[in-house]
């Protein structure tokens, strides 16, 4: 069988079709949100939301078993959406306070999320295997209904994240200036948090809750090595997210490897190569004189004593 036949077979599998559509959407959307999270120094927020979402999955499962829903996990994704959104809003509120006790509060919330999920899923009659598919992703379980959730939420995340990128950037870049401009800083922060929550839930089936954050953050880490602007970083990261997701998923067709972990390892490999190659790429750039000729150059005074700083370098707070 040639690789071409093999590829045709891959593309004709309905399971793989669904998984690929999900991977493209998740790969594109996750780094868009991740760019704002990194700029806000909240790179680990997705991880925290993922922990909390597990309880949502279990609660959804429990509700499904009470309602005798036909697939036992029919309410797992809606449950995860609700828990993730609630969790992200709580995280944002704790961050806004900026208290040291907030750190502990978050840690307790995250571990509570995992422990609650593990306990509740047992109560709901699920197994550890069910749980694993949410923790580490399982494309085999992507149903058509899941796919519709993914399509709708990814479209929402991309529309809001890209459409409102200017105001999201303004608030993420300089919150103080944003407040002094009358921007709705709190609303915008909550929007970013909610986008992160939705991304976690759509990426859950592809890479798993424990690795969701990697798909949001690692492509951004690669992109910021090379891009010169915020917009380019976001676009490059999003493109990388699609590539690693699709390639990682495709590899699982030929090799029995878990897709989520494969995608994340690929992304980290790209980062490692990117970081190694960067000094070579950036070494020669003649148009970038680090000491450009400036009109306001200082007239060099005769001498300045070593322990006598210039008057303009007054101490400031």
């Amino acid at each position: 069988m040639t690789w071409w036949d093999s590829l045709a077979e891959l593309l004709s599998s309905p399971l793989m079709q669904r998984a690929l559509v999900a991977a493209v959407l998740v790969g594109a959307a996750a780094p868009v949100v991740g760019t704002f999270l990194v700029q806000r120094r909240l790179a680990l927020m997705g991880d925290g939301i993922g922990h909390v979402a597990l309880t949502g999955v279990a609660v959804g499962w429990l509700v499904g078993s009470w309602a005798a829903a036909s697939p036992a996990d029919a309410f797992a994704v809606p449950g995860a959406v609700v828990a993730a959104v609630v969790g992200s809003v709580v995280i944002e509120l704790v961050r806004e306070r900026g208290r040291t006790s907030g750190d502990l509060a978050l840690a307790i919330m995250f571990y509570g999320g995992i422990a609650g999920g593990v306990l509740l899923i047992k109560v709901a009659g699920g197994t550890n295997a069910n749980l694993m598919s949410y923790l580490f992703g399982s494309i085999a379980t992507v149903s058509t209904a899941d796919l519709w959730w993914t399509v709708a939420l990814a479209a929402l995340v991309l529309t809001v994240g890209v459409g409102l990128r200017w105001v999201l950037f303004a608030v993420s870049h300089d919150e103080e200036f944003a407040r002094a401009s009358g921007l709705p800083v709190r609303l915008v922060s909550m929007t970013v948090a909610t986008l992160a929550a939705l991304t976690v839930t759509i990426a859950m089936r592809v890479v798993g809750l424990l690795l969701v954050s990697a798909l949001m953050i690692v492509p951004v880490a690669v992109a910021q090595l090379y891009a010169r602007s915020f917009g380019r970083t976001m676009a490059l990261a999003s493109g990388l997210g699609v590539v690693v997701s699709v390639v990682g998923l495709t590899l699982t067709w030929w090799n029995d490897v878990p897709p989520g972990a494969t995608i994340v390892v690929l992304a980290i490999a790209v980062y490692a190569v990117g970081a190694l190659v960067r000094p070579l790429v950036h070494r020669h750039r003649p148009e970038d004189d680090p000491h450009p000729e400036m009109s306001d150059d200082v007239l060099v005074p005769a001498t300045a004593g070593e322990d006598c700083p210039p008057a303009t370098a007054a101490p400031r707070r």
């Binding site: 950037f169 303004a170 870049h173 200036f177 401009s181 970083t233």
Partner: peptide, 20 residues
């Protein structure tokens, strides 16, 4: 502002002054 390390050009920073 220090920010989280995502690059931003002067155009982007000054452009953010147009939002309020």
């Amino acid at each position: 502002a220090a920010g989280g390390g995502i690059p931003a050009t002067a155009l982007e920073v000054v452009g953010s002054g147009l939002l309020h």
